[in-house]
Amino acid sequence: MIRGLAKRFGDKIAVNGVDLDVPAGSFYGLVGPNGAGKTTTLSMATGLLRPDHGQVWVHGVDVWKRPLEAKKLMGILPDGVRLFDRLTGEQLVTYAGLLRGMDRDTVAERVTDLLRALDLTNDAGTLVVDYSAGMTKKIALASALIHAPSLLVLDEPFESVDPVSAANIRDILSSYVSSGGSVIVSSHVMDLVQRMCDHVAVIAAGAVLAAGTVDEVRGESSLEDRFVELVGGRSTAEGLTWLRTS
């Protein structure tokens, strides 16, 4: 649950009073054009970026007043940050588990499971710096899952991930939601959000334009058309007459 979240960078107001209610057990999609404030909102909601205004609660725990408790409940996959990439994939996920104070045996067991589920077993001993972009996303996702959180916050989890892995990840997330976990994903891909999520919020220019279940938000049209309608800025392709080949 997010109330009145706001952040200003210099003169630019990146996020301007965002209110969101993410029901427990929902698969929540966050969509918006580039620079809409998705990443900033998620960073503030997960305790990575201190908001100028507003509050965030996760299962009733105030993220900025009781950060340690809130962080135990959350698994995070941020976008556009580095990893400790001179560790091997196996070491990185182990590190994430140990940092959370888990015991060695549980960590080892879960690391093996996660690497197998994400199809990284054969590359577990390779340094993360030598991974492809998609593999890097997957290993970061594994680090977010290791402590079995009750809320997953994933910023662009499917970017540069190959279709087979993406399908595997979707399966993992769906079964996670059906077992009672909550997921928030941000994405550019409307189609994916429409198929995967049960709730969606459209964000543009740092404010929520629409939020609710996917069916409420899209109404009669497809999510993509509704999104374009809300955000605007669609230009017709008539200008490029010379691009026609015939």
């Binding site: 997960t46 305790g47 990575l48 950060p67 340690l68 962080k71 135990k72 959350m74 995070i76 941020p78 556009g80 940050v81 580095r82 990893l83 400790f84 990439d85 590190y95 994430a96 940092l99 959370r100 680090s143």
Partner: peptide, 11 residues
């Protein structure tokens, strides 16, 4: 650098 987020997010 920003890899530090892991320390932050794991509390």
């Amino acid at each position: 650098n920003t890899a530090f987020w892991l320390h932050l997010s794991t509390g």
